[in-house]
Design a protein around this nucleic acid. Structure first.
Lengths: 202, 202
DNA sequence: CTTGCATTAGACCGACCGGTCAACTATACT
DNA sequence: AGTATAGTTGACCGGTCGGTCTAATGCAAG
């Protein structure tokens, strides 16, 4: 019951930052243990494997994200399409401040991991896919609301949501390749204009 | 002068496929040597380091791409905006056939590498950025042509080209995370509708 | 035939990888 | 106080990592 022990939290905290700023393969257990000031035995007391650690990292990161600035961006009291602008802003400032700290844009942890290990580990891939799925739902909800309010003309909100997520991830990818957060700033405006029409034919 | 010797080519060929289908960190020199039926000494005769190998792989892949189906897609005899549809088609069929072969969508080599190592190696990052830059130019040229022909209304072709590239990479990322090439098929139609207007204000 | 260079073979290097283990300590419950 | 359990230590494992080195080849020009 007591929670005097924060070892597990320290491990995940260190791992979150390392995995986000580097890559899954490049960050070793030893390094994580050193930074968390523990020994390997302790690590393997809490996590049966490196994969289980990154699974926990994904969970925590997704939770941080969902209850952090994404919750702010998708604030129901904001007009729906403004939430998308807000999201872009948040992404921009986050990447920019990360660069100021570490010299490099870390990009999106989920996108990074997805491209690194999707072909190598189906369980991790499925987990990341689930994260993307819930992100998609955020977009879809926003779009549905905007349609309902008559702010935008009807469209295929499911597909458009997926397209928006794709565009967001793509922007972040290019920004990372250029190591320049301004990419997000200058491309961001197109996000909320992406549309995939309802297929009424046939 | 003679070219009876194809060792270097075999190395790069093996490495191209391995790096594309897995990741930079996950593919070792030893494995590449084994698959190319050579010894490490031979490898290091041609490449001073693993990084130099992946640099060569990027070059070759970009060349394959540029003179392969991208050259087809951006065929000047096609109406400009149709080239974009053609490109989506090509990407879709490529990923689909790769999946049939290996069980997994490999995604885009450049995108994969960019997210894996951008924060760790600025030389590689710059190289990948250059590849993206030239891809951007393809889009821009197409857009400029379409504007000239009056097929689309004027827009910021530089930015729109970058946005299109972002969307393309983002689609492929999601497709890889879902391990489903159909993502490209169903999201592809939005690519050619992406627009960033000319900033005439201020 | 010889010299010289490009290529290849394969043993070897220290470092590090993810993971295991037995022993020890701290804590909580009875 | 006694016992069980959770947490921790640090040495240790086999294997692999990227990379080096020396010696042996293949081959071409003189």
């Amino acid at each position: 019951m007591s929670n005097t022990n924060d070892t597990r939290e320290r491990i995940v905290k260190v791992a979150k930052s390392r995995f986000h700023n580097r890559s899954y393969a490049d960050v070793g257990i030893k390094e994580i243990c050193d930074m968390a000031s523990i020994q390997k035995g302790s690590f393997y007391h809490f996590f049966p494997s490196k994969r289980d650690l990154v699974l926990a990292v994904i969970d925590e990161f997704a939770a941080d994200w969902a209850y952090g600035f994404v919750a702010e961006a998708f604030d129901p009291s904001l007009p729906p399409m403004e939430r998308i602008d807000y999201l872009i802003d948040a992404a921009y400032f986050w990447q920019r401040s990360s660069k100021e700290l570490n010299g490099h844009i870390p990009g999106c942890l989920f996108g990074n991991l997805a491209l690194e290990i999707s072909t190598q580990d189906d369980i991790l891939r499925a987990k990341l896919n689930a994260v993307f799925s819930s992100a998609k739902q955020r977009f879809k909800g926003t779009l549905d609301e905007a349609i309902e309010q008559g702010v935008i003309t009807p469209l295929d909100s499911e597909l458009t949501a997926e397209a928006m997520l794709a565009y967001l991830e793509g922007m972040i990818l290019l920004a990372k390749a250029e190591n320049d957060p301004e990419v997000i700033y200058r491309l961001g405006s197109a996000l909320k204009n992406i549309r995939i029409e309802l297929n009424t034919l046939i």
